[in-house]
């Protein structure tokens, strides 16, 4: 029963953190921080997603093999972004 209570507590704490991050990202959006705005918004999104993956999707307690599968999708997305942007970001260089 103890393990049960601790699992439920983890879910509730995660939820509170996620809602707090949501409020934070909305508030920060109303401050003019220039280039930092999208960076902070992105960092908050990544943090929230990580919380969901580790706790709700219980990857934290999964075998190492599963971590590879979790990472693979994001890694390949990174390849797509990096190489496609190597075109779009350098197209006007001379």
């Amino acid at each position: 029963m103890n393990a049960n209570a601790s699992a439920v507590r983890t879910y509730i704490l995660t939820e509170i953190a996620l809602l707090g991050l949501l409020a934070l990202t909305i508030c920060v959006a109303y401050l003019n921080l220039g280039l930092l705005n999208p960076i902070i918004a992105g960092a908050i999104s990544v943090t929230s997603a990580t919380l969901i993956i580790l706790n709700f999707m219980h990857v934290r307690h999964s075998k190492p093999l599963l971590w590879i599968f979790v990472a693979a999708g994001f890694f390949w997305l990174g390849i797509m972004f990096a190489l496609a942007l190597s075109d779009f970001l350098t197209r006007h260089w001379r």
Binding site: I79, L83, S86, D87, L89, T90, R91, W93
Partner: peptide, 18 residues
């Protein structure tokens, strides 16, 4: 194989650096 797709676009006006 995932890192080379741009060689199909050498004459497509993609960035020369890419």
């Amino acid at each position: 194989g995932f890192l080379v797709w741009g060689h199909h676009m050498f004459v497509s006006s993609q960035s020369i650096y890419a």
